[in-house]
Each structure stands twice: as structure tokens, then as C-alpha cells.
Amino acid sequence: MPTIRVSANGEAALETRDVRVRYGNNEAIKGITMEIPRKRVVALIGPSGCGKSTLLRCFNRMNDLVPSAAVTGEVLFHGENLYADHVDPVEVRRRIGMVFQKPNPFPKSIYDNVAFGPRLYGRPPDLDDIVERSLRQAALWDEVKDRMNDNALGLSGGQQQRLCIARALAVTPEILLMDEPASALDPIASAKIEELIQQLVEHYTIVIVTHNMQQAARVSHYTAYLYIGELIEYDDTNTIFTAPHEKHTEDYVTGRFG
């Protein structure tokens, strides 16, 4: 199977080795080994239930919150296994941020949403700057700068999702994991998120799970195709969508199933 190899020149932001996830007796991820290149967008695609969200949640140990999930194998971040005994999942999640499928702002003010992360680690004196910088990075600042104390739930869906992105950026992660970030949004809001991803990748490594193949084709540099817990093919996005090596991949991206 063709795959992306970047570890030789130290350019991998994340590297998985034979990662398996089991829910009770059901193996959702069946031994995936892959590398996520630094400051690139990697899309995970595949039909529903193929394990792409489960795999994404291995990258910042969100699976720990599901009592029945058991993860084996290694996920290396700067050469350190995220699942090693000495690693604290709370620290992992600060370094590797996450944006969820449904916008989930806290029922607090816009300011407090963004400030929540930085405040977890103490009382940063430059909190206002952090909030402004994060909102600017998420392309939301101009829309909300005059109503920072309004409740975040009053924003539109697309604004809420960009607020969630700003909130994740405020704790300065190195990697941003996005679990179908635009699937609950209308096409215009969705396009804004895609545009944003392309700006963010200058500073961050982004892994995005998506159901929308056009979206994967538009925003990502590399695409991984998963099917029932296995990595079928992982290559340049262009190759995956125009000249995949696997028949299975071709059937999926051309819409013959899934």
C-alpha cells in the first residue's frame, strides 16, 4: 500500500504504530500505522462506521473518556508515545486541540469561551491579547469584537464553530484535530471553515475527518481512506482522488458505494 513517509527527515507531527481500538469485543481500529506530516492538512475519509472519528480521538486521548474503549499500539508525538504510563492525558489535550462535529460553545460569553482554556493554567496577564489573537486567527474577530460579553449561544452556527476553533487555538496547540467540523453548517459557513483551515495550516498541523469528499479534495494535502477499521490507502490527496492504487479506494471516491 502506498503511504506517506516523512519520519526520516523528522517532519512527522504524529506517527502511529499498529494502533488498535477495541470497544468490548468489537475492534474498531485494526492496527493502523501512519504518519501525519507537520504543517499539512490530512483528511481521514471513509464510509460511516469505518473508524475515522475513533482514530482521530486516539490522537489526543479523547477515547480515554469512553470507559469501554481500549487502545493499544503507539501514537508518537515528538517521539514520545501518547499512551506511555508517564504521559498525562490532560497535557496531551492542551498540546493537541480538538474541534467537534457539532459546534459546542460553552453557555458563557464569547470572551469567556476563548479565555476558558488559558485560564485553566493560571491567570495570564495578557489574556485580552490572547483572546483577540485567537479570534483573529479564527477569522471571527471583526464579527464579534463589539459584543465580547454576549452569550456565545446567540451566534450563528458557523460563527459558533469558528468560536470553537478560536477557543482551541487559545491554548496554543501544535496540532488541531477536526471531527467533521463543517457537517452541521450551511454551505457558506462551511466554505468559511475551509478557507480558515487553509490559513491555519501555515502554523498548525491539521487532521480533519470528513464525510464530504469534495471538502477533503479542496482542503487537504494528504488523504487517508479507511474502511472497517483498516487503512486502505494513504497518499497525496490528488493521487487518492484521481489515480488511487486500490480498487476499493477508487470505488469509494467515485461514489460507487459508501
Partner: peptide
């Protein structure tokens, strides 16, 4: 209290 709120909080590195 929706699980999505907890996830958002844990996802930011909250204990």
C-alpha cells in the same frame, strides 16, 4: 448537561 460541553472542556486540557 450535554456530553458535548464536557468534551469541549476536556478537549482544552481541563482536568
Amino acid at each position: 448537561v450535554p456530553g458535548s460541553i464536557r468534551e469541549a472542556s476536556y478537549g482544552l486540557g481541563a482536568t
